[in-house]
């Protein structure tokens, strides 16, 4: 049964955002298993743990204490065992620099946190059900930023 779940991870230091995130998945009728982490260090500890089940999609906030999103991204992309994880950047910032840098560092998609719960649900369902192989092969700077 475990394989039918889509494993999802979120690393975000903001409690409200974690709440919106889990609420959104609760309301979405998709078979998902959501785990949240308070910062980058927590996330990386989990990922490196041999018993951990690696997520299908990882949502990564950029601005986090201890270890920020960029650092996590670099670490994940360096390690071959994380090759199958699709990394979605999930940030308040929509600055060109952040978008550019995460694109270069190998993130798969960039999501600007929406300011409407309904829209959040829509975006998350879309991202989770995305055909990553197809998306990644045609990835460019224009479709990197998720637009709704």
């Amino acid at each position: 049964m475990n394989t039918d779940f889509i494993n999802i991870c979120l690393a975000d230091d903001d409690e409200d955002d974690r709440l919106f995130f889990t609420d959104a998945f609760d309301e979405l009728k998709i078979n998902t298993k959501v785990s949240t982490f308070n910062d980058g260090v927590e996330l990386m500890d989990f990922l490196h743990h041999p018993d951990s089940i690696l997520p299908n999609v990882l949502f990564l906030d950029l601005n986090m204490p201890k270890k920020n999103g960029q650092e996590c991204l670099l670490e994940i992309k360096k390690d071959e065992k994380f090759n199958d994880i699709a990394v979605a950047i999930y940030s308040t910032s929509s600055s060109e620099e952040d978008i550019e840098l995460t694109f270069i560092n190998g993130a798969n998609i960039y999501i600007k946190k929406p300011n409407d719960f309904e829209r959040l649900k829509k975006i998350l369902s879309e991202v989770v059900t995305l055909n990553w192989q197809y998306h990644t092969s045609g990835l460019n700077k224009d479709n990197f930023l998720m637009r709704m």
Partner: peptide, 9 residues
């Protein structure tokens, strides 16, 4: 953004 999201909720 949080104000707006909570409002939408």
């Amino acid at each position: 953004r949080k104000i707006e999201t909570f409002l939408s909720r």
